[in-house]
Deep mutational scan, measured.
Amino acid sequence: GATAVSEWTEYKTADGKTYYYNNRTLESTFEKPQELK
């Protein structure tokens, strides 16, 4: 079976905060997504 690849990509803001962006739902969040835990 195919492994589900996380759609979340980790980015940093200009002031160094980490956030996560989902390229399928176009959602962004500062909290670590469930799929990455």
Rank of each mutant, 00 (worst) to 15 (best):
S28A: 11
E31D: 11
E27Q: 11
N23M: 08
L36T: 05
Y19R: 04
R24V: 15
W8H: 00
T29Q: 08
E7I: 07
T13A: 07
K37F: 13
T13V: 03
A2R: 02
E7N: 05
P33M: 01
E7T: 05
F30G: 04
K12I: 12
T9V: 14
Q34C: 09
N22K: 00
W8P: 00
F30S: 08
W8E: 00
E27I: 08
T13I: 02
E31N: 10
N23L: 06
P33T: 01
E10N: 02
Y20H: 01
T9R: 10
N22L: 00
N23A: 08
T18D: 04
A14Q: 10
A4S: 14
P33H: 02
A14E: 11
Y19M: 08
E7D: 14
Y21A: 03
K32V: 09
P33W: 02
T9L: 09
T25G: 01
D15K: 04
K37M: 15
L36Y: 12
T3A: 14
L26E: 15
T29K: 05
P33I: 01
K17E: 10
E7W: 07
A4M: 12
Y21Q: 08
G16E: 03
W8L: 01
A4Q: 13
K32H: 05
Y19N: 02
Y21D: 03
F30N: 06
K12Q: 12
S6P: 12
K32G: 03
G16H: 02
V5S: 14
D15V: 03
D15S: 09
Y20F: 06
E35G: 11
A2Y: 11
A14S: 11
K17F: 07
G16R: 01
D15R: 02
L26I: 02
A2N: 14
Y20K: 00
K37R: 12
T25R: 01
A4I: 13
N22G: 00
N23T: 10
E35W: 05
F30P: 05
Q34T: 12
E27K: 06
V5K: 06
T29N: 03
K37V: 14
N22W: 01
V5C: 04
A4E: 12
E35N: 09
Y11L: 15
Q34L: 13
Y20E: 00
K17N: 08
K37A: 14
L26A: 14
N23Y: 09
K12T: 12
E10W: 07
N22H: 01
E7G: 05
T3N: 14
T3P: 12
T9D: 05
N22Y: 01
E35I: 07
Y21M: 08
K17Y: 09
S6F: 08
A2W: 13
E27R: 03
T18R: 04
T9S: 13
Q34V: 13
L36E: 06
K37E: 14
A4P: 12
K37H: 12
T18F: 07
V5R: 03
D15Y: 05
V5F: 12
P33G: 02
R24M: 15
L26Q: 15
T13P: 01
G1K: 04
